[in-house]
Amino acid sequence: MYDGSKILAGLIVFLALVTFPFWNNFGAKEWKQPELKLPPKEVATQCIESKEYMREQHMKILDDWRDQVVREGKRIYIAKRDHKEYQMSLQNTCMKCHDDKEKFCDKCHTTASVSPYCWDCHIAPKAKGN
């Protein structure tokens, strides 16, 4: 080998960087999805759409709502699931039930390293302990 020590050192550093996901979690057995604090039954029994739909699309819904309300003045959302009418509002609809940002929104956003800009304008309501 020629310049073996230098090449080997570089190779080891590279492989250490590449295998970061593995050694970073070395020894851990399992990663559990964050547990969300859902509103109690007497406050609400269902969300505007199904759980799966909300998990995947809530950011799209909020983005659409923002555009509809602010730019077009429309405030009524008709649910895809049961055609019920809801007011398009983060604070008055979503957070009426999911009132604790830290125990609901932030749980997944933190683990997914997402920082939504909702809170640049909106102020999260004080948690009522729902």
Binding site: K29, W31, E52, M59
Partner: peptide
């Protein structure tokens, strides 16, 4: 399409912990 990102994280984390779990979502 939008995917369930937390379920994907559960999958990727299980993969690097050598105990693969594939959530149905």
């Amino acid at each position: 399409a939008k995917v369930d990102i937390v379920s994907i994280k559960q999958f990727t984390m299980s993969l690097v912990m050598f105990s693969p779990v594939v959530p149905k979502e």
